[in-house]
Every structure is written in C-alpha cells, then in structure tokens.
C-alpha cells in the first residue's frame, strides 16, 4: 500500500479494557502522534466507520454491544484488536466474566499486542488494517473497479467480503 484513495474513519469501543489502551488510542489522535494526517477521524457513529478498533476482552454484558456495532458498520470493514486483552484476554483471561479475545465473537483482521499497546504500534496496526480494507474493497463483487468508485463503498447489499460469523 503506497497511498490512500480514501479517508478511513474509525470507531472505538472499550469492551472491557482497563482504559490503558483506550487512552493510548485517543493519544494517537492528538498532536504528538496525529493519525489525522492519514485522514483518519474518530467517529462516534458505526455507520460512518470503516475501521473498528476494539480494546479489552469480551464479557457477558458487552457481547451484544460489540456485535451490534459490528453489524451496523457498512462493508467493507476491518477490525483491529488493540491490546493483549482484546487479542487473547491478557491478564484477565482467567477472570470469570471474560470470555477471551474479541475473535471469539467477530472476525479480527489485525492484532496489536501490548499492555498497554503503545501509540506507535496502534498506528502501525491501523495502517496495516487500511491495506486490508483496500484489499477487501477490491475483492467485493459488483463494485465498479475503475474511477466512479464514489458510490462503491456505499453498496450495502454486497456481503462477499468480510462477512459476519
């Protein structure tokens, strides 16, 4: 991936993280690390988002919330699991209320380990995810491949790429 054709927006959800990774995700947006230079904006609306950044592991109550946010996002979409808790459950994997990583619930494209994950590695993870996002978009059938792809990502009927479990 050498350049970006679009500005990918991300949505962040704190599954059951300790906040450590959450504030590092937010720190990525601020002047020191500044992911906005890649055109990335943190949005609160899943329908506007291309990248789903999840921190923390799945627990009993947020299972439905994660699934709901994921289902509301429009194809193509990528999921980035930030922090070791989102990858595998981390130090909390033995807690009674934690099922484990996010991949127990939704397909994950990029894993960013670390406790707490450093902003540099989060940015690296998100940029990797953007490559996957571009790939997924290309692989979507009935999407016009050349020019005129303004409407491409709005095609909601297509479920061939990504897909839900």
């Amino acid at each position: 991936m050498t350049y970006l054709a679009k500005s990918p927006w991300l949505i962040h959800y704190d599954a059951s993280s300790c906040n450590g990774c959450d504030i590092e995700v937010l720190a990525c947006l601020t002047p020191m690390y500044d992911v906005e230079r890649f055109g990335i904006i943190n949005t609160g609306n899943p329908k506007h988002a291309d990248v789903f950044v999840v921190t923390g592991g799945v627990n009993e109550l947020n299972r439905a919330v994660i699934k709901n946010i994921y289902d509301q996002m429009v194809e193509p979409k990528v999921v980035v699991a930030v922090g070791i808790c989102a990858c595998s459950g981390g130090v909390f994997r033995e807690c009674y209320n934690i099922s484990g990583g996010i991949d127990k619930l939704i397909p994950v494209d990029v894993y960013v380990p670390g406790c707490a994950a450093r902003p540099e590695s989060i940015i690296d993870g998100i940029v990797t995810a953007l490559g996957i996002l571009e790939e997924k978009r290309k692989n979507m059938t009935n999407v016009p491949q050349k020019s005129a792809d303004n409407s491409a990502s709005h095609n909601q009927n297509n479920q061939s790429a990504g897909g839900t479990q």
């Binding site: 450590g20 919330v65 130090v91 807690c95």
Partner: peptide
C-alpha cells in the same frame, strides 16, 4: 460493561504477583 471480576483473581495469583492485576484495575 467493563466488569471483569478481577478481585476474584486473588485465588489464582500470589500476593506479590497480584500487584500487576491491581495496577490494571484502571489504566489511568
């Protein structure tokens, strides 16, 4: 929504090691 039940981990971690869990109650 963020309930992990980490207080129960004292049964599985020895007290000097549990400091790491206590620290991860909150990342701020």
């Amino acid at each position: 929504y963020v309930h992990r039940g980490l207080e129960k981990l004292v049964e599985k971690r020895e007290f000097p090691e549990y400091v790491f869990i206590a620290e991860r109650i909150c990342g701020i």
